[in-house]
Design a protein around this nucleic acid. Structure first.
Lengths: 342, 342
DNA sequence: AATGGATATGGTATCGGTACCATATGGTAC
DNA sequence: GTACCATATGGTACCGATACCATATCCATT
């Protein structure tokens, strides 16, 4: 391995002088600088950032731990994080938990050992222990997408409850009265808040909750598929509209409905959260759009502010607005159903 | 920050003794071990792996640089890599290039500075310079999915040419004579080999190549969509079958065909490479299935063999077989077309 | 009693890079 | 002429953990 001492020897200077050339600190004469640069080039020297990090006590690295990297929502969040981080020359280590707590914990341990400067993470439960453990080491954390009350960390997330309320409210205004909910694990704040928004809208319309119309699975395509199948088997009368709590659930739901022979929106309306690029041709699904890029960007900027000591101490929740996008997957219920149910 | 010295002081021993307890090396009495372990627990000490890596001259870290993390093919490869690596207590840093050469290069530079022990990478062009640069530093590289001749690195990839040949041959046997190809960038080996397999099958049947039937775009859904639209506009007579060179292109193609009103396989057959989990309900697409998990696993094992010095020096190409999965998206051409063209 | 091996622990140097302080030269101000 | 500052370069220690060698004790063997 080529070290700074090898370069120094070749250029006939002390190692510290090479360091000055590399980091553009202190005084170096033009002539010396040139000699050093030549030596660097000739030896193909690149500095060892392990020793730099050891010395500086920082690694210029952020961890971004997401729950499902195959969901374009999270890839877009990642892009936001990377763009914000690169402005401060920070690199981002991306980790994927697949919603598994043990994976989350082993990544956190690994990253702490590696002296990661800060964490952006998507929690899997509402347990704040892990997050507090990171913070107690003096490493700042910003929680993404799913607030964890009592964690003492900043969090950045979309207005799930408001978005869910708006979607369901919109379905109610169209005349739907039996609206099914396909949501994710209830231990996840997002699932629970979307359920809350759903319930609030129904309550406002004086519609009693029907537990058979509420299914909680996972935020996955297969789960959406299975939940619709189960609902089609067990619920009677069938709902006239479905609210899938995320985009992948919606894709699975569409497949199950398609196989069943139900047309969207003619036979059943379908609304969801978060866009998918070009899913089924032209934009089709009515949905509440969060701003994933902004979410990542905002969270990263917030974390960087902590790293620079520019952030106030009080933990702060940043709630990003969601936008209702009305598209082709939602329509009024069919006449006979409207009559039957009213 | 809690260091090994803090622990040593609290336990009343020398730092090296703490090190022995942590790494279970050398002799330590039970009584001392207990005192040290208590101190570690009380101080919540975790070792700083930067300094360990600096000392050991290895980081126990592999880099996995893929081209498109949103494609389930690559997530499955990643799982294979992670499983193989964890058997040797190596951790994996996942990087996503989005098929951009500059991203690839900046990741490689960063990871070299961080003393990554080995690279698994998906090249973007057939240029071997970057790969050679890594190897000249003594860091082993295994190339994934896309062989780079002359790079001097091992490569592990599926039999693209054979798979493409089998698919097109199968379409020809069904009676198709006008078969369109929607492939990726031709600078990528995979695209080019699938083109070769396609051409070989056609040649065997004495069918002259029609350049209008061959489109090269990107390995993306949007690109598949656009290529089909372009083909529908510009080609006459239309092909009776399409070979999409990867799964995302196939999804985009299906969307475009659906919008156009063409049914698969009644109006046009569609075959592709690589599965997608649950895409459009039950398995539907006829395809050549590579084994992504095995690909990742094999490549990682190969890289680990290099790290342990157990691998022979001669660069080795490992070609994994692909499996033809005949499903519902392919059928004989319609009668009138069969007659017209023969 | 002397030897030797197993057990147990510590001092010092080192990995690669840089902070801090020291040193040396040249030019400018008075 | 001297005081002072800007410029230019180097020596040494240090970041945190561990390899290597040294030291010390104890018990078994001859």
């Amino acid at each position: 391995m080529v070290t700074i001492r090898d370069v120094a020897k070749r250029a006939g200077v002390a190692p510290i002088t090479v360091s000055r050339v590399i980091n553009k600190t202190g005084y170096v004469s033009d002539e010396t600088r040139e000699r050093v640069e030549t030596a660097i080039a000739e030896l193909h020297y690149i500095p060892n950032s392990l020793s730099q990090s050891l010395r500086f006590k920082k690694t210029n690295t952020l961890a971004l731990i997401v729950s499902d990297i195959t969901n374009p929502f999270w890839t877009t969040v990642t892009r936001g994080v990377e763009d914000a981080s690169s402005e401060d020359d920070l690199s981002v280590i991306l980790c994927n938990t697949d919603e598994q707590q043990d994976k989350l914990e082993s990544y956190v341990n690994l990253l702490l050992q590696r002296q990661t400067d800060g964490f952006l993470l998507v929690p899997i439960s509402r347990d704040s222990g892990l997050i507090q453990r990171i913070q107690r080491r003096g490493v700042p954390v910003v929680v993404l997408d799913r607030p964890v009350p009592g964690s003492g960390a900043d969090s950045v997330y979309g207005d799930s409850e408001g978005g869910a309320y708006a979607l369901v409210r919109y379905l109610l205004d169209l005349g739907h009265r039996r609206i099914g909910l396909l949501t994710g694990p209830l231990k996840i704040a997002t699932s629970e808040r979307r359920l809350k928004g759903y319930q609030r809208a129904l309550t406002e319309f004086g519609i009693p909750a029907d537990p058979g119309l509420i299914l909680a699975g996972e935020f996955k395509q297969t789960s959406g598929y299975e939940m619709v199948q189960r609902m089609l088997r067990t619920v009677n009368p069938l709902p006239t509209a479905l609210f899938a709590a995320n985009n992948l659930i919606a894709v699975g739901a569409m497949q199950a409905l398609h196989e069943y022979g139900a047309r969207v929106p003619d036979d059943i309306s379908l609304v969801t959260f978060d866009d998918l690029p070009l899913f089924l041709g032209a934009p089709f699904l009515t949905l509440a759009a969060q701003a994933p890029y902004e979410l990542g960007w905002t969270a990263a900027k917030r974390l960087i502010a902590h790293l620079k000591g520019e952030a106030d101490d009080a933990p702060k929740d940043i709630v990003l607005p969601v936008q209702l996008m009305i598209r082709a997957s939602s329509a009024p219920p069919r006449r006979e159903e409207r009559i039957m149910q009213s």
